[in-house]
Amino acid sequence: MDTNWPIRVSDLHKSFGAIHAVDGISLRVAAGEIFGLVGSDGAGKTTTLRLLVGALWPDAGEIAIAGYDMSRQAEQARAHLGYLSQRFSLYEDLTVLENIRFFAEVRGLSTGEWLPRSMEILDFVGLAEFKDRRAGQLSGGMKQKLGLATALVHRPRILLLDEPTTGVDPVTRQDFWQLIIRLLNPDAEDGVAVVISTPYMDEAARCNRIGFMRAGRFLLEGPPSALCATLEGRILELRGQPLRLLRRIAGQDEDVEDARAFGDRLHLRVREKRMKAVLRRLPRRIRAGGGSLDDLRQVPPTLEDVFIDLSEDVL
């Protein structure tokens, strides 16, 4: 088994009729690493994950999971995979433990093995004391954790997670990510390799590497810090009143490429090497235009700045 790259994917293609859902994706993920897939609905994130699980057959390209070729050794490859799909369903009339047992048996754990392993995993996700509760009676966050537990029951080396935190409350999102980070365990031999899709930029920033997808391709791929570095020295944060007026004035500046609201402030993307010029004249223009300025300063670029730069609103 290729321990360096539990996930190796090269030039993956998948079309549905005329739509190229996945159009040339390549990626490698090491043990102890999280790779994040970011993009709109329809960008190809779910299709990519379904190809990696072997639920869909690619039109072209290669997938190696734990060193096994998905096209010829799917069985062996899947033995190393844990997958949590977006529309994951539990058996609501079974208890927490019965649900885990079901997935453990599907995964071929023997009678002797499943109970200790199930208790270990329930303990890990913090559901041990709820083992006899029916899944239908769990809160949303608990269901999410049970879903993760079922995906982990056979100790997979590779974990594929399709928007596991979309629409869940921040408390659960926190808990969920803390579990993922503990699974990564990059210093130990049993570190897991994770691919996760997410609509949240703060979660994307937590990944070792991310790929921003549109129309089945990566428009940009790399570690969050490297992606942010591409806009270093080009983002200004502006605060003042009224925001709409400030935005219009800033947007008219010849060296401001983009002015967007970030909560109660604006982020301005400035042309390369024009930062000083903008810092000098914008306060004057705002005052002349009847606005009031509370603060204008250079800030480190965020992933959101990077994606906005890249994904100008397109058809």
């Binding site: 993009g39 709109s40 609905d41 960008a43 609509p199 930029m201 549109r214 994606f307 906005i308």
Partner: peptide, 9 residues
């Protein structure tokens, strides 16, 4: 829901 950060803005 489900749109990228740019389209959200």
């Amino acid at each position: 829901s489900g749109v990228d950060p740019s389209a959200r803005r």
